[in-house]
């Protein structure tokens, strides 16, 4: 018994070490005074200071955030519509094809998506003269196309879970279809829409492969910047930048977790209340 638990503990420790030692070492070396990324030269926060003075990094960050906000929002609108259509309209002409086309980017290799999107933009520029140059617009469009599927999947799953009778009930009580959508469907699936948006936002924010295909000169997103800097060798300011990203994401997950836990506790209390009222 004792031996087995030691074994299990060791396996778990190795597993966690494999996941988190690289990240922890990166955070550790971001406070390194030395220029050399892997040689400890004393504690310093100078790389963080340098980061905030680096206009290139700040520009890339702003561009990435702008693209992520816009593409996540558009992907959420389109993805929600597709998710609802797939869940509620069980039979329409071309449903199988539609479902396949919507989910294809999920399994398509990113390189293929990237190169085909690039080819499409080049052909389009040839035929109709748009887009004249690649950059913000083309990156945003490409991000919408591959992040939409995540929203669709989440919304579709939530719609299948929800009782379709509540929509019928609203219609039965006098609401036209668009009112039902506004009053019932959207509020009920709003958590799925929100998490779909967050997924799309995150995916857009850290995409390298597809972005590198469809970007143009002078339009460097944050992941592209990191990628190009690392090609010249890992410097401590990259460590500092990555540390900040990790901390931001970590804080976000922590806050979301706390909110969810609170909601769950409230729900449990409500259930007990209902149970007591039933006695």
């Amino acid at each position: 018994m004792r031996r087995r638990s030691t074994f299990l503990f060791t396996v778990m420790a190795f597993g966690f070490a494999f996941f988190y030692v690289p990240i922890l070492s990166m955070i550790f070396f971001s406070f390194n005074a030395s220029r050399l990324a892997t040689v400890w030269g004393g504690f310093s926060t100078k790389w963080y200071a340098a980061l905030f003075r680096n206009q290139q990094v700040l520009d890339a960050l702003v561009l990435s955030l702008k693209i992520a906000l816009l593409s996540a929002t558009c992907a959420t609108i389109l993805g929600t519509m597709a998710g609802i259509a797939l869940a509620r309209f069980r039979r329409f002409r071309g449903r199988v094809l539609f479902s396949g086309l919507v989910t294809a980017p999920l399994i398509m290799p990113e390189v293929i998506t990237g190169i085909s999107t690039l080819m499409f933009f080049i052909l389009l520029a040839d035929w109709v003269g748009w887009p004249g140059s690649r950059g913000f617009t083309t990156i945003t469009l490409a991000h919408i196309t591959f992040s939409m599927v995540f929203v669709t999947t989440v919304v579709h799953a939530r719609m299948l879970q929800a009782d379709a009778a509540i929509e019928e009930a609203a219609m039965d009580l006098g609401s036209r279809p668009w009112q039902v959508l506004k009053d019932i469907t959207l509020p009920v699936i709003s958590p799925a829409i929100l998490s779909g948006w967050l997924l799309a936002f995150t995916i857009s924010l850290d995409d390298v492969v597809i972005t590198s295909f469809v970007t143009g000169p002078g339009n460097t997103t944050l992941p592209l910047l990191i990628w190009s800097k690392v090609k010249l060798g890992v410097t401590p300011d990259i460590n500092a930048l990555a540390t900040l990203i990790v901390l931001t994401v970590g804080a976000g997950v922590l806050i979301a977790g706390i909110l969810l836990q609170r909601a769950e506790r409230r729900r449990e209390r409500d259930m007990q209340l209902a149970y007591r009222a039933n006695q």
Binding site: D163, A165, I166, E168, A169, D172, D183, I184, V188
Partner: peptide
Amino acid sequence: HMMFQSYALF
């Protein structure tokens, strides 16, 4: 109006 088997409350 209809009362649904699942009640279908909002």
